[in-house]
Amino acid sequence: MTYCVGMRLDAGLVFLADSRTNAGVDQVGTFRKLSVFENPGDRMMVMMTAGNLSISQAVRQTVSAWVSESGATIWTVPDMYEAARIVGEAVRAVYRQESARLAEHGVDFNISIVFGGQIRGERCRLFYVYSAGNFIESHEENPYFQIGEAKYGKPIIDRVVTPRTSLDDAAKCALISMDSTLRSNISVGLPLDLLVYEDGSLAVTRFVTIDEHNQYFQLLRNSWGQQLKTVFEGIAAPVWDAAPGTTDNVLSSTNMHSRPVRAPLPEGMTAGAPPAPLQSVAQQPPVPGQH
């Protein structure tokens, strides 16, 4: 499995990807899922993939070499929308080549892509590309995309990240999101690739590969866990069956009439009476004529 997150901010872009792949508990590997297409001064683009590893690698290679009917390539298209179209066409091309053979072996054509960057003359843009080759673009209301094991790391991003978030704060949030995923799902693992791109740079601004010895990541993991526990312990316990308005932490009040859904007692059973003991096969009397 995998977990990747890409963020589009007013200040630039943040990309974070893990590197674990596995086909079972005893078949764990490390493969880089973040690829950069960069021509410094003209364009900087990042592609992160989740899904079948062989499909992902085939799509990445196809994107690098793709030439459209008009002769355009990932290196010559005038804007990020056209670049995203090339990524989508590459996905469709690999599907045509591989899907039938994969289906013969019971393997689904499974890939999802976060693709973003900047081409000279336009703003930073971020896209989510599906297995069918179609895609959507990130806008003000949704400044990030996730692929892979997204559920564990989503809550912190929803609470923190907006287009106005700084690049460093977004990178910190992405790492906390990844740490939550690492703790909850063993199919996501170190090392991590973190790329931070400053708007207008047209080249990679900052990049680091993070392993278990990375000083900042260890600090973040430890302090985040400790502070979460401190916040948790600082929240008052619920008060049950209190008068309304007595305190702010009333969970159920005396004027509430909540009742659980209860299953009816079996026919013949009296309320409050202990159930009759069950008789095992060994306790049953023998049938005459049988041994």
Results as ranks from 00 to 15, higher is better:
T2S: 15
G6C: 06
M7G: 02
R8L: 15
A17D: 01
S19G: 10
R20M: 06
T21G: 15
R32C: 11
S35K: 09
N39C: 06
G41E: 13
D42M: 05
M44V: 11
M48K: 03
N52C: 09
S56P: 00
V67Y: 06
S68T: 15
G71N: 08
T73P: 00
W75N: 03
P78D: 07
P78G: 04
P78M: 08
D79H: 14
A83S: 10
E89K: 02
A90C: 11
A93H: 12
Q97I: 15
S99Y: 15
L102D: 10
A103G: 10
E104M: 13
N110Y: 09
I111W: 03
I111Y: 09
I113R: 02
F115K: 03
G116C: 07
G117K: 05
Q118N: 07
Q118C: 02
I119Q: 04
Y128D: 02
V129S: 01
V129E: 07
Y130V: 00
I136A: 10
E141I: 09
P143A: 06
P143K: 07
K151G: 00
K151N: 00
Y152R: 01
I157K: 01
R159Y: 08
R159N: 12
P163M: 14
T165G: 02
D168P: 00
D168F: 12
A170M: 04
D179Y: 13
S180E: 12
T181F: 03
L182R: 01
S184I: 01
I186Q: 09
G189R: 01
L190N: 08
L195H: 04
V196N: 04
E198V: 00
E198I: 00
D199M: 05
S201C: 09
L202A: 07
V204L: 06
T205N: 14
R206C: 04
T209S: 14
T209H: 09
N214V: 02
N214F: 14
R221W: 01
N222P: 01
Q227M: 13
F232V: 11
I235K: 12
A237N: 14
A242H: 10
P244E: 07
S252D: 13
S252W: 07
T254L: 12
M256N: 10
S258Q: 14
P260D: 14
A263S: 13
L265C: 11
P266D: 07
M269P: 00
G272E: 06
A276T: 13
P277F: 10
L278R: 05
Q279S: 04
Q279T: 10
A282K: 07
Q284S: 11
P288N: 13
G289N: 13
